Amino acid sequence: MWFGESCVGATFYVGRVVHTRSKPLKRVFAYPMRFAVIDLDSPPSWFTRSGQAGDHLSADEVRERTGHDGPVRLFTLPWAYGYVQNPISVYYSYCLGTDAGEERMHDAAGKSRKFELKTCVAEVTNTPWGERVRFNFLPGGTRAPKSLHVSPFMDMQGEWQLTATDPEEDFQLMVSVKGHPKFGDYFFAKLDARRDQSAPHARNERSGIWRLLQHACTPHRVAFWIYAEAVCLLSKGVSMFPPPGLEFVAKAACRRGEVHEIGSGDFVGMNCPLRSTWHAARAWPWRT
């Protein structure tokens, strides 16, 4: 059905992203978003049929890099009409737990089992260059070397601090830039989200007229908001920094002793508890 679909394997959330910049000027930038949390062990048909599954890690690949044996879920923006704009996606990797606060899920045989969120994997893609970095982080918070030129209004100095909560009825994702030699802790981004109770398993374009008006073509809207904010920052005189390129990032990581393998344009780094991978995105912004 065009309206009112219900796709098993994907749960939709609505939320608001807020970027707060304190240096070199104070600026708050916010926009609404409706996105999906995908069960990568049993994804909806549209996720695989559209080709989006091939743009992300599989459940087995996430388990291999995290060392956990439980379910894997992915927070991401679904493609819309062939267009993709995912500044950050996050994989949630679970294992059999022992604490009372564990989440109850069902394994492949349908048996109810308790799993605990142990490790997340951030998948960051920069705008507009389409380069990407993946790295592990702990849900309670991990400070990671800044390994991608994400914004033309930020240099490569400082570190990322990431924190995430388990996607349940509500959840949060927080990213900040810390330890910059000139600006200190000057940038903070936060997503506050809640499960869409009215249409939890329907895509933005197929969940009714109201959501069609509010959230259709979310990737296109996110791109518009990002570029509109860039124009605003330029008008206020914020300096721009050219992208150093993935080769520069890989060489810098190699000098820090983080890279243990370089080949085929991929740069794989190890810096416990992190495991990072750099590569060029397949294409942007339109998929064919």
Rank of each mutant, 00 (worst) to 15 (best):
D55K: 13
M174A: 14
V90T: 10
T127Q: 08
A122M: 05
G51Q: 07
L212E: 00
H215K: 05
M156R: 04
W225C: 01
K26R: 14
D55W: 09
G263Q: 12
F224S: 08
E5W: 09
L212K: 07
A223G: 04
T163G: 03
K178G: 02
P128N: 13
S198V: 10
L233P: 04
A228Q: 11
Q52D: 15
K178R: 07
P242L: 00
R134E: 03
H201T: 13
H106R: 13
A189T: 11
I209G: 07
Y92K: 05
F267I: 10
C232E: 02
Y92L: 04
L25H: 00
S93V: 00
T288M: 08
A59D: 03
R27L: 07
L173H: 01
P71W: 06
W129C: 04
F135L: 12
K111A: 01
D55Y: 10
G110S: 07
E61A: 15
A280R: 15
P243N: 13
T218I: 12
F224M: 09
E169P: 02
E169R: 14
D60M: 12
E159C: 09
E116N: 04
H201W: 11
P243F: 05
D99F: 06
Y186I: 02
S239E: 00
G257W: 02
V249I: 06
H149Y: 05
K182T: 15
P242A: 11
F3G: 05
F3W: 13
A250T: 04
D185Q: 08
P71E: 14
Y83W: 06
S198T: 13
A144W: 14
L246V: 05
V90F: 06
P128V: 05
C95Y: 06
P200Y: 15
H220I: 10
T76H: 02
S276L: 15
L274K: 10
R287V: 14
S50Q: 06
Y186W: 13
A53F: 08
V124Q: 05
A80C: 12
V222I: 15
R211P: 02
F29V: 01
A283W: 03
E159P: 01
W129K: 11
V62T: 07
A230H: 06
G67A: 07
E247P: 01
R73T: 09
V150N: 02
S176L: 06
R104P: 00
Q161K: 08
P44K: 11
A53H: 09
L117C: 09
P152E: 01
T48W: 03
S239T: 00
V14A: 00
